[in-house]
Nucleic acid binder design. Structure first.
Length: 503
RNA sequence: GGGGGUGUAGCUCAGUGGUAGAGCAUCUGCCUUUUAAGCAGGUGGUCGAAGGUUCGAUCCCUUCCACCCUCACCA
């Protein structure tokens, strides 16, 4: 080799930056095409998934069955004229053994140049190596898709959280536990659907684009319809539409809904998130409590085959009846004072003396809520229904049958997380109008999240809505609980991120 | 919005007031039962961005950007 040739070779060997690695893979792509190989063929006849092969390995190996498998090459160990490689499919990974004698020199030459990340299809028989690894003895090998972008470190994987969220597809390739979390998410959703459908609830769909938002207290995302020349809002809740369906004569409806709230983001909040809402005519909030308990037990058991789970250092048991305690009683237990008969000023004084921050508690209900959050909420580890909320903080719930200051409402807490919210729904149109008007006052006083008056909804109530129990729960939080995830971002495939800046 | 942390090669990470290192990936060679294959050799960086201090900054200071944690806010 002359000096000139040597330096040419060194120039050609330069491929350090990402751009150059990609360029090198493109070069291989071109070489494949020159050799008459389509690097992106159309299909592959696959007979077995990895888990199927591993489950029936002994029999398939003994029979000499030819299996046809496909997946992404994640590791490659080349030893001259024979190689091992690990192929991953959705169900797992398996080792393949590619020997020049078996596949032929041309195919082996091609295989030698394939990169980690390429998709392969192989056909072959099964055998166990000297070291005991279940493997595929490949007789036929085809490239199914060329990968141009290198994968993260084969051992350390991808750790950087920003990259994992922004490029979830890479996260999924290299971090198998992420895939497992999302498979569980899917199972949970299936289990919920089975439960409600089996109880005779009709799964329905209601608008995401709404002219007036409502059903929750939150700031909305606003958009514009060009042809109608009108502003629209992405829904913050489905409640008011589902209840219109009860006016219309449906008795048991529910919906899996994506809701959107234009608020802060943290480990429990993503601007777009999944809820289930459900409405049940002729039922009240005690019926809903029984329903929720049954649903949680089914979902937990379907997923874990047991009623006990672990979450963040707690063992949580779904088998016993969920505890029920009213909000003021819960505060009395922990704080030692009883708010139920105090007026606003007295309650506020008592709360302040106990160290509760009541600066923003503008009425009795808000004081009760502040005391509850201060003293009680963090202590609610086992599934607990907190019932009978103050009226001021519950504009869509019916007044309590035994107490005028309270409404028939509960929230379910598990592991300190708020996991469900339900009422005996307010169906008195005049009372509903008064509650909306109180919200409008609050909005005027600067509450950006107060309810807007929805005249059409009030009209619907005037036609008459049966007594109804209603429920809402956050699907993402339930998935967090059941998958041991600390952040909502770990149970949403593509959580909201700030757009990357163009450099 | 407050506080704390992180940002160095494609990935995972060391490191230093005198313009940088490892492992993996990648490239070349050898190797027909390896498995984080091995062995030998090679390439690779505007040390997040912009200012400042300094003879000299990746390191010290300021500001900014992104992400993480946490508190606050928030059905």
């Amino acid at each position: 080799m002359t000096d000139n040739e040597r330096s040419d070779q060194q120039v050609q060997e330069k491929q350090q930056t990402l751009e150059e690695v990609v360029a090198n893979r493109r070069q291989k792509l071109e070489e494949l095409r020159q050799a008459g190989i389509n690097p992106y063929p159309y299909r592959f006849d696959k007979t077995h998934a990895v888990d199927e092969v591993l489950a029936a390995f002994d029999k398939l190996a003994a029979d000499g069955t030819v299996v046809r498998m496909a997946g992404r090459m994640m590791l490659k160990r080349k030893m001259g004229k024979a190689s091992f490689a690990d192929i991953h499919d959705q169900t797992g990974k398996i080792q393949i053994y590619v020997k020049q004698d078996n596949v032929g020199a041309d195919v082996y030459q091609m295989f030698s140049k394939l990169d980690l990340g390429d998709f392969l299809g192989v056909a072959g028989t099964l055998f166990v190596t000297k070291t005991g690894e279940k493997s595929v003895h490949v007789n036929e090998l085809v490239l199914l898709a060329k990968s141009l972008h290198p994968l993260p470190d084969k051992h350390a994987g991808l750790v950087d959280k920003e990259m994992r969220y922004r490029r979830r597809y890479v996260d999924l390739i290299v971090n198998p536990e992420v895939r497992e979390t999302f498979i569980r998410r899917s199972r949970i959703i299936q289990s919920i659907r089975e439960f409600f459908n089996s109880r005779g609830f009709l799964e329905v769909e209601t608008p995401i684009l709404q002219p007036i938002y409502g059903g929750a207290t939150a700031r909305p995302f606003k958009t514009h319809h060009n042809t109608l020349h009108t502003d629209l809002y992405l829904r913050i809740a489905d409640e008011l539409y589902l209840k219109r369906l009860l006016v219309g004569g449906f008795e048991k409806v529910w919906e899996f809904c994506k809701d959107f709230r234009n608020e802060g983001m943290d480990r429990l909040h993503n601007p777009e998130f999944s809820m289930v809402e459900l409405y049940w005519a002729y039922a009240d909030y005690t019926d809903i409590m029984r329903l929720v308990e049954d649903m949680f037990r089914k979902v937990v058991f379907d997923l874990h085959g047991a009623y006990k789970i672990r979450y963040e250092d707690h063992e949580i048991d779904f088998e016993p009846d969920f505890r029920r305690v009213s909000m003021v009683d819960a505060v009395r237990e922990k704080a030692g004072f009883d708010l139920i008969d105090m007026d606003y000023a007295t309650a506020r004084k008592a709360a302040k003396a106990a160290g509760v921050d009541v600066d923003k508690a503008i009425n009795w209900g808000k004081v009760v809520e502040a005391c509850f959050e201060h003293f009680v909420e963090p202590t609610l580890i086992q599934p607990t229904y907190i019932t009978d909320f103050p009226q001021e903080i519950s504009p869509l719930a019916k007044v309590h049958r035994n107490h005028p200051r309270l409404v028939e409402r509960f929230e379910l807490f598990i592991a300190g997380l708020e996991c469900a919210n339900a009422f005996s729904e307010l169906n008195d149109p005049d009372d509903q109008r008064r509650r909306f008007e109180a919200q409008a006052e609050a909005a005027k006083a600067g509450d950006e999240e107060a309810h807007v008056i929805d005249e059409d909804y009030l009209t619907a109530l005037m036609y008459g809505m049966p007594p109804t129990g209603g429920l809402g729960f956050g699907v993402d939080r339930l998935v967090m609980l059941l998958t041991g995830s600390h952040s909502i971002r770990d149970v949403i495939f593509f959580p909201q991120m700030k757009p990357e800046r163009e450099e």
